[in-house]
């Protein structure tokens, strides 16, 4: 087995006095899709945010334990958060393209790195849009405003923007929650194409989506990682009573 791309060791997070994550230890293998499921407030989004240090700016936050990404302990002093976030891309629930052209949205992160020629930018923008399964729909329209795209296209644009800076990990926080079933299916297909090349961690409330897309699924409740296993196993015969109750709609938090 390959070395894990992401590894959390006894990771705990408190918002003030409230514990949001309780000593979570979890490894995510390179190229796999891991779904994080659980009732609201169970800590799954907190975990996702901990992995590219989006929690750093939250007031009264306390983080204990370790997170490694590609063998780098990301909470050590001296870690460059900008570089980390380039390696660990994030896609949010609501598509959030910048109010620029389609081209400039995808090129944005590349320009931040500073040293790209126009032809190189074009090449990477096309490659990223192709990987995000959007190129065929937007070629010849790259100068149009990103906000003129449909919701589903905007979300794929955001994925292209994340891919442009060559991450190894993609974090997706309910990436299809605001999309219609067709756009949702396109994003799910896309995740199928991206897995293998990228390590994907996805928070979803859509259990069937987790079942369709994820290689493994982790169930969280009250800040604890209750169980993690092959999606096939978790969805047909989970080992913990709480997982069983959650999947059958009988969980009471």
């Amino acid at each position: 087995m390959m070395a894990p791309t992401v590894r959390c060791d006894q990771l705990s997070v408190w918002y003030g006095r409230h514990p949001a994550l309780k000593s979570v230890s979890l490894s995510v293998q390179a190229g796999e899709v891991l779904a994080l499921i659980g009732p609201s407030g169970c800590g799954k989004s907190t975990l996702l945010r901990a992995i590219n240090r989006l929690l750093d700016e939250v007031a009264h936050i306390r983080i204990a334990g370790n997170v490694w990404v590609d063998d780098e302990d990301i909470y050590q002093k001296g870690v460059d958060v900008t570089t980390l976030r380039r390696r660990v891309g994030m896609v949010f629930q609501t598509p959030n393209p910048f109010p620029f052209t389609i081209f400039n949205n995808v090129a944005y992160g590349l320009r931040l790195t500073g040293k790209r020629t126009q032809s190189e930018l074009r090449r990477v923008v096309e490659a990223s849009l192709t990987k995000a399964a959007l190129w065929d729909e937007v070629r010849g329209k790259l100068a149009r405003p990103a906000l003129s795209l449909s919701g589903g296209q905007q979300q794929r644009l955001c994925i292209a923007r994340a891919l442009a800076v060559e991450p190894t990990v993609l974090l997706m926080d309910e990436p299809t929650a605001s999309l219609d079933p067709l756009s949702t299916a396109r994003i799910e297909d896309l995740m199928g194409q991206l897995k293998g090349q990228y390590t994907i961690m996805m928070v979803t409330h859509n259990l069937r989506q987790a079942a369709r897309v994820a290689d493994r699924t982790a169930f969280f409740a009250k800040g604890e990682l209750v169980e993690v296993g092959l999606t096939r196993q978790i969805f047909t015969a989970p080992s913990d009573r709480r997982t069983e109750e959650y999947l059958t709609g009988r969980y009471e938090s």
Partner: peptide
Amino acid sequence: QQPLARDLR
């Protein structure tokens, strides 16, 4: 209903 886990079984 797309049952899961025990309901599916």
